[in-house]
């Protein structure tokens, strides 16, 4: 299995480089100028040209691409055009934030989605099934941007100040100002409080879709002969549902994980923007708007790598949930 995983990862490198190259060309062909961020009233064309030279933007396209690729192959992502920080530092400063948010949201989404889907399948056609279906559909079809603002209004602005709820959450950021002055337990609590709203928002949107998948998968499994056999053996219903049915129903759901990793990373863009969460999504959008191609290229490569890893994870999980599938011999 390990050999299989290594082969999959290495095999994706040329593909990811190809994607980054296409992105480079698209950015280069797009209208606009990365140096325009430095434009100021009173600036002469000569000064602008000097700034372009200082940023290395005066070189022909193939030379710029060559510089980037050469650095990249040496493990150096270059320097951001908007400011000059090393791209590696810019990405390392925000990547853990996105991974934290995405992984917590993914966990919450799958936990909630599986639970809701199972309950719906077990209580098919009941009022509870209808209510949960309606709720899932509602959150599934909500724009995450709008939902995020509603979450802030309800659980942050109104919860504490207006309605006097005992719990309210900070509307934005990854930690409070003065976080470094807090004790260790207080710091953890502070992080969790800041993570709650963005992670819940992301999870709510995703959980609806997962629940629909689990429900239909469970219904299909529940009609199988071996479930009837399990019941005939006199096994308690919870054991039939959670051990026999769910394990088999999860096989197609695992595929979702591979699909949801890129979806989740894309979905974090809006969430990071609204909740001022300093993450990869925001960095990428801001860099695209500024045509900061070193950051965009490195980010594209990383996003691509995460998609590959997500799909690989899904394939490996297949082997875990379905004993009939084993990797490593092909």
């Amino acid at each position: 299995m390990l050999l299989y995983a290594v082969r999959r990862v290495l095999g994706a490198v040329p593909l990811l480089l190809g994607v980054a190259t296409v992105v480079f060309l698209v950015l280069a062909l797009a209208p606009g100028d990365p140096a325009s961020v430095y434009l100021k009233p009173g600036m002469s064309p000569e000064t602008l040209e000097q700034i372009r030279r200082n940023l290395g933007l005066d070189a022909p396209l193939h030379v710029q691409y060559g510089r980037w690729l050469l650095s990249f192959l040496q493990g150096d992502f270059g320097q951001s055009l908007a400011g000059g920080m090393p791209v590696k530092d810019r990405i390392l400063a925000v990547l853990p934030n996105t991974l934290l948010l995405a992984s917590v949201a993914l966990f919450l989404a799958f936990a909630a989605g599986i639970l809701i889907g199972v309950v719906q399948a077990v209580r098919q056609h009941s009022l509870l099934d209808s209510v949960l279906s309606g709720g899932s559909l509602l959150f599934y079809s909500m724009p995450s941007f709008w939902l995020a603002i509603m979450m802030i209004l309800v659980f942050s602005v109104n919860a504490g100040n207006v309605w006097g709820w005992p719990v309210s959450f900070p509307p934005s950021g990854i930690a409070s100002d003065g976080h470094d002055l807090m004790g260790p337990m207080e710091q953890i609590r502070d992080r969790i409080r800041h993570l709650t709203l963005p992670a819940l928002t992301l999870a709510l949107v995703l959980a609806g879709g997962i629940a629909r998948y689990v429900r239909s998968s469970m219904l299909e499994v529940m009609g199988q002969d071996y479930i009837r056999t399990a019941r005939a053996k006199g096994l308690p219903e919870w054991r039939v549902v959670w051990k026999h049915a769910l394990r088999n129903a999860l096989i197609p759901v695992v595929t979702l994980m591979g699909v949801y990793v890129p979806l989740l990373l894309g979905g974090t863009v809006f969430i990071e923007y609204v909740f001022a969460w300093p993450g990869m999504g925001r960095l990428m959008v801001e860099s695209i708007l500024l045509e900061d191609y070193p950051v965009v290229l490195a980010g594209t490569f990383l996003f691509g790598a995460m998609v590959v890893l997500g799909n690989l994870l899904a394939d490996l999980l297949y082997g875990v949930v379905d004993p009939r599938i084993r990797h490593g011999h092909g």
Partner: peptide
Amino acid sequence: RVIPEQTTLLAELLTGG
């Protein structure tokens, strides 16, 4: 602090953030 979304920024002001 950089808070790009104006509604969130207003929420931070209202909640004392």
